[in-house]
Amino acid sequence: MIFWKLFYTFCKIGAFNFGGGYAMIALIQDEVVEKQAWMTAQEFTDIVAMSQMTPGPIGINVATYAGYTAVVNAGYDPWMGVMGAFLSSFSVILIPFVLMLLLAHYLLKHKNNKNLNNIFSSLRITVLGLIAAAALQLATPANFGSWSQSPLQLCLSLAIFLIVFLLSLKKKFSPVLLILLSGAVGLVVYGT
């Protein structure tokens, strides 16, 4: 039953996400593309693109859209997909929400607890590896093109990747702008 699996999967993702929106993209990617195979790497990449361009926390946007896509890909109609979307976003916030109500008081009192600080500094470093793995797993021929089928697409994709990567390191460029520009390049090169 896909709804039960969605609930369980997104509860787990919410409960184990330490380290912000990109870490959550990594966890969602691992579950919905690699483990459950609810969608392809390409579909997931498109979802991330659209989640970047609409307002709100990216983790919520990706969870919502991925929940919708998982249900529709399983053969249900789009309105069941909408149910799946609400269920996924609800599930992803459920456990952190409950934990916050239970532990907020205690944690504020012990905010300098050294055991907690050790755990969090270890997690902060490890999460970098999770995000790197997600990027590697999304660098597929479907997303970049392949040498045998379209050398032009592969070369252009690598160029876009490098330029966007270097510009993002500078931080001044908003993701939305970079996505729009890359889309314009795609339109000009492939669309004409």
């Binding site: 380290g19 498109d46 520009l181 890359s182 795609g186």
Partner: peptide
């Protein structure tokens, strides 16, 4: 055709935080 341009951009947007977040981490 638009998304063909966007996909490598999205992968780069996911790869970059690995390095921008490294110092704070």
């Amino acid at each position: 055709s638009i998304f063909k341009g966007i996909r490598p951009c999205v992968v780069a947007l996911i790869a970059a935080p690995v390095f921008t977040m490294a110092k704070n981490a």
